[in-house]
């Protein structure tokens, strides 16, 4: 059931609170992401950015508040997790891939085993995705044989193979050596250009500025400031935003 007064958002968070024991990590997060919109979450460590992503795909349960993904209420007790995770794909910072399977098998596994799609079709799609992330020829390589950047690109292809509507990237370049960051960012740029709704948690400021439609700044569990990249970087409103940008830029 969508709120008829606001435009239908693809992903909408409303006053989400999350505490781990006594520590309150999310103190009332509200944000919405429109279809094909690219949103970046930026902020200091521990401000709750990753937690927001994990709440969206129900990896972490929330305490109060509502999260809606294309009509699916994530906070519902009777949530159909599979339906949700078909719509939302996620790529993590490290140790993503299944080390005991080849790159191609990694990409193909979930559609076959979870969705029950026929192997032939999935293989065709998987090979296309592998080519799209520019890793043709690496079908039979094991993750242990791939560089960090290559692994992340396979991880992105793997998430894409489930045909999601939303892609979430949780600091996916943070653990990479600098020379590999670019190739992964290029891949993300391609995914964004294809019209995918994307939510990124990232420290790559230049990339955020270039690719994002909106940037949200989080600090201590709250969204402090939201703006277009231009306004955000050039004219930060809040002093906390200013302080953070001074430190990182």
């Amino acid at each position: 059931m969508t709120d008829s007064q606001t435009p239908s958002a693809h992903v909408r968070l409303t006053d989400v609170h999350k505490s781990f024991g006594k520590t309150e990590v999310l103190r009332g997060i509200s944000m919405s992401v429109a279809r094909s919109e690219i949103v970046c979450l930026i902020g200091p460590s521990g401000s709750g950015k990753s937690t927001i992503l994990r709440c969206i795909n129900a990896l972490t349960p929330t305490n109060t508040g509502s999260i809606k993904v294309d009509g699916i209420e994530v906070t519902d007790a009777k949530l159909d997790a599979l339906a949700l995770r078909r719509k939302v794909g996620m790529v993590f910072q490290s140790y993503n891939l299944f080390p005991h399977r080849t790159a191609l098998q990694n990409i193909m596994m979930a559609p076959i085993q979870v969705l029950g799609e026929p192997r032939r079709e999935v293989e065709v799609r998987a090979r296309e995705l592998l080519a799209k992330v520019r890793l043709e020829g690496k079908e039979n390589a094991y993750p242990g044989e791939l560089s960090g950047g290559q692994q992340q690109r396979v991880a992105i292809a793997r998430a894409l193979c489930m045909n999601p509507e939303v892609m979430m990237f949780d600091e996916v370049t943070a653990a990479l050596d600098p020379e590999m960051v670019k190739e992964v960012l290029n891949t993300i740029r391609d995914v964004a250009r294809d019209g995918m709704t994307c939510i990124l948690v990232t420290h790559e400021m230049r990339f955020a500025r270039e690719v994002a439609n909106r940037i949200h700044f989080t600090d201590k569990g709250r969204i402090v400031e939201s703006n277009t990249p231009q306004e955000f970087f050039d004219h930060p409103q809040d002093e906390r935003t200013q302080a953070f940008l001074d430190k990182v830029l």
Partner: peptide, 9 residues
């Protein structure tokens, strides 16, 4: 790795 599996459904 486990969470990646969960995210894939």
């Amino acid at each position: 790795t486990v969470e990646a599996a969960k995210s894939l459904g």
